[in-house]
Design a protein around this nucleic acid. Sequence first.
RNA 1: GGCGAGGUAGCUCAGGCGGUUAGAGCGCAGGAUUCAUAACCCUGAGGUCAUGGGUUCAAUUCCCAUCCUCGCUACCA
Length: 678
Amino acid sequence: MSAPKRYTVTAALPYANGPVHIGHLAGCYLPADIYVRYLRQNEKDVKFICGSDEHGVAIIMKAKAEGVSPQEIVDKYNGIMQQAFEGFGISFDIYSRTSKEIHHKTASDFFLKLYEKGAFTEKETEQYYDPEAEQFLADRYIEGECPNCHFPDAYGDQCENCGTSLSPTDLINPRSRLSGAKPERRKTKHWFLPLDHLSGRIKSFIQSHKDWKPNVYGQCMSWLDDSGGLQARSMTRDLDWGIKVPLPDAEGKVLYVWFDAPIGYISATKELMGDDWETWWKDEDTALIHFIGKDNIVFHCIIFPAMLMEHGEFILPDQVPANEFLNLEGKKISTSRNWAVWLHEYLQDFPDQQDVLRYALCAAAPETKDNDFTWKDFQTRNNSELVAIYGNFVNRVLVLMQKYYNGTVPQPAAFSETDQELLQLLADAPANIGQSLDQYRFREALSAYIQLARSGNKYLADEEPWKLVKTDPERTQTILYVATQVCAALAQLGEPFLPFTSARLRSFLHLDLMSWEACKRKEFIPAGSQLEKGELLFQKIEDDKVQTQLDKLKRNPTQNNPSQKLIPLKEEITFDDFTKLDIRTGTILAAEPVPKTDKLLKLTVDIGVETRTIVSGIAEHFKPEDIIGQQVSVLANLAPKKLRGVESKGMVLMAENAEGKLVFAQPSDTMENGSVVR
RNA sequence: GGCGAGGUAGCUCAGGCGGUUAGAGCGCAGGAUUCAUAACCCUGAGGUCAUGGGUUCAAUUCCCAUCCUCGCUACCA
């Protein structure tokens, strides 16, 4: 699109079941905010849209865990998140909530419109139903034994112990998390959005956006080429928390949270703009830009556009600048393990230092690949860049101004070549930084910005006004006039990145915020202007502060020893139950990998009475050649099962610890094959 | 296993539609300086651009294969 008339910029709606951490900020909200502030300073017509995503099963579960209502949960986290965003100066034009009336209406209207257009196919499927609670159970509502690691409390969508993705029907002895009752399978009707007939349009839509970042474009194409086309997706759920399906025969059903959430962008715009909202979503001259993390790419680039296409009236996203993930001290950020830096806690631990984190996260943003955040790096960014380069430069100028001229900007004489070059650098800076921002290259933009302060420091070092002041007052005046202009440029162009600092610096210089275009100049502050004494813009961060943060992270008990999470004992069985198992000793005669799998080995095992083939998921732990001749214990009377086309008869018994390490459960001394284990 | 993204100085990253000595910041070493939060400024050391082949007069940049990391996906009797 060439020169859009306006911009609708969205940042992913954060899910209201927990607070926001630095990964969210670095991946989504900070770049979005920098971009939006930049657009605003360019006097573009822009709306920055966000809000809490407050529906879905995870919130119900969270409420259940804390013994409160879902409403209380979302109220609580909505408050925490909103404050955190505000604290960091994330300048949303509106921060709404999907629990609001206006969103319920918008989302149901959207659904109805698709319904009336015949976009959905109704399908009956079998789902687990809790006869005591009298409701259908979402995947997360069902727990049972994990078929993989035999953890007894695996959920219907995933086993928390071994991380395997599951479907509820995989669980052994499933039970309802609501009542504990044994769920039964019942038929239920849902509305599916078939995507196959759109795949052509979606593909050409994606292909028309080769300008998207490689990670975004690549993942979309991969998804489209994958799995034999796009599968129909159910857009409704049997649940009582969410937006009621607006159809007569849909009692007890709500819209799937992934259906309603992106519509939240639209509802929030309505809430903000009233009747004008349509311009921001339907006018071809509007650029729609979604800032998200990489986990959201497929949804924002394919599913949501497909919904918009089906509806027919909406524009499609122009850009989806998704970032990769931010790690913390070398490990993946994990909410459940509390391995995170929470924004609301940072604001308490580092009061009035929001810009430091903004700076550190922007400078190390995971733009092209996952990146690691360390407190050490944070400290270095602060001490040797913000303090030593930026803060120091400004301080030097303000101190000299005060010393020599009582803060009144002096009249410059003729400019030397060096002066001219530096002033030209200022005049070029907006275009230079802007070019990076236009391409969503935030690290590069920030580095170009801080380069101004570096140039200022070099200028002072080269010109040495503190020497010249004794011999050449006129030249000194010129130098400090020029240096003052550099400070002013920093104050103006820093607004997108470091809004708090920029505002403070402008107040020292008695400047109002200028437009980006107006900053393409050499003089920001004319001679004769009065400056404040000012104060230091940044404080050094000492080692003990960093150590405190590291200790705080490592003190976390669940993080320290995840291996202590032993699986609880199973319920008692009878001796008869035990005698049903026929466990024999055997010897592995041959082993080879099963083609096209990572984990499976095809074993030939002599169990005395016969030699048989057993497929075992141990390929990641053992090389085939190393286990030939290995004596093992085999569960011999397990029903045969075909795995990846190979018939497996029996199971090789292994001991596994919490970290997933496997060892053979074998006789302590060599025994004849076929010996009974009991 | 399939698909996608990435593998470039000690660290964090740029770059390259093939072409003289491959860049930045931090860190490190040396120097200079004192206006400044022992900060700034200058100089320097440091890279077989993952590995192995191929195309080419020429590859780190293109092609193929392999290895490693991350994500999605298949799979764990």
